[in-house]
Amino acid sequence: MSALAALLVRDIRIGVRVGGGALMGVLFFLVVVTLVPFAVGPDLALLKRIGPAILWLAALLASLLALDRLFAADHEDGSLDLLLMSRAPLELVVAAKGLAHWLTTGLPLIVAAPLIGLLLNLDPPAEAALVLTFLAGTPALTFIGLIGAAISVALRRGGLLLAVLVLPLTVPVLIFGVAAANAAISGPMPFGTPFTILCALTLASLVIGPFAAAAALRQEME
């Protein structure tokens, strides 16, 4: 357990240091959201209506940002070999790295989302609902992304391939995340229905992600 905790702390440190993914992710998130009104026009009613969708899309893209370096950096400096040889189960090692990635890129997005939501004319209840869907849904994005990161670990230019592989797999999370946020804002259905399914998707990805990513790493590193 202490080995996993040490790994978690190490990955968080790497994430928050200068050049790490954490602040970059929030900055990217802000830039993408800022660009949308330039594309669709500054109509506040429209922005309010599509606000949750924009924020979810931006979060989806931002969570991909640091993902391609998640295992690749460890592969390059050799620490991935040590992780593979360690006594801790690789699935848990991968899950710890995923958790660290979520804490350094997912969590800052959730903190920033209400502020950035103000730009899109979202009112406080809508922002509360959005934060709740982010909290439930962004771990799924990270843990699905883990699989892509593990598959593309040894590729020199894995970043673009990673996005192409991972984004179609995240369609259900996007659908239910946006639906839950919209349900809380405008109805017509109760918030609980899509939100429960979103939680179920996250729980499933918490299991499937580490197992598939660990399997991929074992296969790649042979």
Binding site: I151, A154, A215, A216, Q219
Partner: peptide, 12 residues
């Protein structure tokens, strides 16, 4: 190696 990476992606 491509086969093994693609196999995992296919199963996911």
């Amino acid at each position: 190696r491509a086969a093994r990476a693609a196999a995992i992606l296919t199963l996911v």
